[in-house]
């Protein structure tokens, strides 16, 4: 590869990092064994990353719905089209805001704790201990967390969307006095089950996969020191935020 400006190492480093993360994922999946333990542990991890994120998702969703409706209501009523507010709300939530915002909140709440947990396991030799007991840490630690993220993020997106729509109802119907039937029927008239809602959920699955992958990977490769774990946690948030936004664009472009 030709590096014209900066030293080639600086250009190749992110690429190498990506390759390592990819290989890591490949190893994790190639050793996948679906056992009863695996299922139970995945459920436990769904609790830790999903249920523990509920508070932030519910409040976040509600207020996003509230403010989104407030702003669009104000804008639309200047054109006498305030009725379309529920359409705008539902479409922007289902297609973009639900999956993207939920994943960002998930990365901050659950991703960081996954990274820190695995990083500390590395630092306190717990991963070594598993290895020495002939128990595969990939199978025991990494896989349940990966699977849990793939399930938990779409679940959280659904809950986020419901809360945001409720926020919209609260503003439009209870505070502005819009007709509730019009609110719902306008939404139903324009939102298509598969093209809008289904595609959004596909994104949610992809984002959940991405977010838990990055969280687990940065924890796994963290240097076994306090700075190392702190750095890895930061990297998880940054990498998830950037890659989710990029992936969102790519997926949107494909789906439209």
């Amino acid at each position: 590869m030709s590096a014209t400006s900066s030293p080639p190492g600086r250009l190749l480093n992110p690429l190498r990092q990506l390759g390592r993360a990819g290989l890591f994922l490949l190893t994790a999946f190639s050793r996948m064994r679906l056992t009863r333990f695996q299922a139970a542990e995945t459920l436990r991890q769904i609790y830790f990353s999903g249920v523990r994120s509920l508070v932030i998702i519910v409040t976040g969703g509600f207020f996003v719905g509230l403010v989104l409706t407030l702003q669009t209501y104000d804008t639309l009523s200047r054109f006498g089209a305030a009725e379309a507010v529920s359409t705008v709300l539902a479409l922007s939530l289902f297609r973009e805001l639900g999956p993207v915002l939920t994943t960002l909140l998930f990365a901050g709440r659950a991703g960081t704790s996954i990274t820190a947990e695995i990083g500390l396991m590395r630092a306190t030799e717990q991963l070594d201990a598993l290895d020495l007991m002939a128990i595969d840490p990939m199978e025991r630690i990494v896989q349940p967390r990966l699977l849990a993220g793939i399930v938990a993020v779409p679940a959280l997106v659904l809950i986020f969307n419901v809360c945001a729509i409720l926020g919209g109802v609260v503003f439009a119907v209870f505070m502005m006095g819009s007709d509730p039937i019009t609110f719902w029927s306008n939404m139903q008239a324009t939102v298509e089950l598969w093209r809008d809602f289904g595609h959004g959920m596909l994104k949610a699955v992809a984002f959940g996969f991405l977010a838990s992958w990055l969280a687990v990977y940065f924890g796994w490769t963290a240097r076994p020191t306090s700075e190392g774990v702190a750095l890895a946690t930061t990297q998880t948030v940054i990498a998830t935020a950037i890659s989710v936004l990029i992936l969102d664009f790519v997926l949107s472009a494909f789906m439209l």
Binding site: L43, V51, F94, L156, N161, Q188, D196, F197
Partner: peptide
């Protein structure tokens, strides 16, 4: 495990609510 189960049930409820109330069917 119980709480995680309730959580998933909640998500399925949300799915049904959104699919029925916000998109496909009518009032």
């Amino acid at each position: 495990e119980l709480t995680a189960g309730i959580f998933l049930l909640l998500a399925i409820g949300a799915l049904i609510f959104l699919a029925v109330q916000a998109t496909d069917r009518g009032v």
